[in-house]
Design a protein around this nucleic acid. Sequence first.
RNA 1: GGCCCCGUAGCCCAGCCAGGAUAGGGCGCCGGCCUCCUAAGCCGGUGGCCGGGGGUUCAAAUCCCCCCGGGGCCGCCA
Length: 641
Amino acid sequence: MDLLVGVLSRRLSVGDRWELERLVAEPPRHVGADLAFPLMRFTRGKAGRDMVEGILEELRESPLVARAELVGGFLNLWLEPREYSRRVFEALSTMGERYGAPPSLGRRLRVVVEHTSANPVHPIHVGTARNTSLGDTLARMLHFYGHEVNRRFYVDDVGAQTAYLAYGLHKLGGPGEWRRLSQGWKPDHWIGLVYALTYQLVELAGLKKRIEEARREGGEEYRELVSQQDRLVSSLARLRERHPEVFDRLSRAVLEDPDPQARVYEWIRLYERGEEPVRGIVRSAVEMALEGMRQTLDRLGAVFDAWDFESDLVWGGLVAEILARARQSPYYTLHKEAEALDLGRLAEDPEVRRRLRIPGALEVPPLILRRSDGSTLYTTRDIAYSVKKYQETKADLIVNVVGKEQTLPQAQVRLALYALGYQEVAERMLHYSYEMVNLPGRKMSSRRGEIVTVDEVLDSLREGALGEMQARGMDYPKGLREEIAEKIAVGALRYFLVSVDADKPLTLDLREVLDFNRNTAPYIQYSYARASGILRRAGQAPNEPPSHDPAGTPEERWHLLKLVGQYPYRLGRAVAELRPEYLVEYLGRLANAFHKWYDTDPVLSEEDPDARAYKLALVGALRRVLGSAMRILGVEPLERM
RNA sequence: GGCCCCGUAGCCCAGCCAGGAUAGGGCGCCGGCCUCCUAAGCCGGUGGCCGGGGGUUCAAAUCCCCCCGGGGCCGCCA
């Protein structure tokens, strides 16, 4: 690969290696070559034909090249297995555990990856798990490659949702009482229930008022309101079953309040001003929610370097600074009563669109920064947060893993940053967007308290894994069995969630994930366990083979060796394009190549000691590459399963 | 209504940005392989007007235009 690109780069005088590298392809099977390159676009005319001769000649001189031919405009290369093997093992030996990463990185980038940032009012659900899996995998990929990564979780504690939650919790008493009431519950699950109850009870109170008023007039509106009320009541009845005591106390307290809706709105403003006791109540509520979330994130293997509270941006004055700058800006405008930025004009500049990666012909309406009641909006605070992330890290790239539905607000944030003089920040921000996760037959709504939590999905996957182990008669001791099942469950979910293009909606069919069907984490883990088993039985295994391909190269072994040698290149592409699914595809092929070889060319019963040593070294190399790529994807390698 | 994303076998997906060889996998279905390193495996078979139409090109799943279908966004929510 390097050889080919090197020669081509010189002969074709193409400076950009990446340009050539991406064109190198696997030839179709009927050709039988190891590498192919479409030369026709570079070699038109007579001068081109001479150039081709030169290229072929130079390539044929290399000990790595067995054969080089030009067929129908394609340059086809056959490699010399011994020489290739020598080079692969040399790279493995010099790079050690870092095999796959570049020996020297052109420039070490500082990268911020902000991901998950789930609203604390409810537990992490399967959609968020896609965010976590993508974000954490990107971070691991970049880190392994040699970049400096900073992982951040943005705690969204300002605004209506946490105000509802805190208001409800307050009606139940203080943190001590919350603990008592949530006995036997995971903290975030209990918080989610209180939030859903509070939200619906406040809704109900408001609805009752409006029904009173509409009763006199009667008619269509009245009937509509009553039917809304019926739906709310039946939803509340379902929630009551989960925790009758909490329900009863909460409903009494909320319905006693003369105007719960107004109270909640007041709390939003009080919290934003940082006034006690609201400030303390909200913070305790959020702490409790985060405690539960951290348990789930730990389970998924996601760790963070920083937890940034949205409220700190407000109290620390950064949001005020953004507003002050906005008022000086030529884009400043009043939208009805509210302060806003009119970004439409800026968004029309094609140069700005390109630099800020504004998609297609996206139309950009004015961005409201401050409500007429004086409170700020999420997007306003996000502008401040972007500035903070940059100021604290001076990052070259700020990756925000945020749902696709937020394409417009994300674009508005970048444009606003640009408009307010933070061009540098704006240009370094990347909205890494991903589509929703659907569950067949289940419609999620956090306000109704109906969400499919990651915890329950993982539990169900773990049960499935345990069942499978039992069916296969694996009789590990109890602790080990549970540990393996848990690692299979987490791996299966994470692997699945990053396996398809983030731009495509994903359907999480639990039965399907439980099937462990083809290119899944268990398939990869199984390959790793098989390789581990061979090495365990062999006792000592050489890291480097004494000789390369002593007894010729069967097709299956050659194919595996080539894939092992491709790891640096495949990982490089995944990192450059921030596409974890490339790694998934690669792992699937690698595991498959190993299984095929395994079935045709026994290792341990090989009698020729040189050949046996070589095979063991190859198993070791494969195991190392599998393990490395698995860890990047958050899939735990298993010695046995 | 405007805008964004997606559309490839019965089902799920890769390839598209940066056009090149006979469009690749997987699931499902049918049939094989455990006296031998873990059968969560392997082998064989089955299945495609690449959503439709037009254009650009020596060459189009890939680029451009129109249309159709699915999802999303257009809020003093996030």
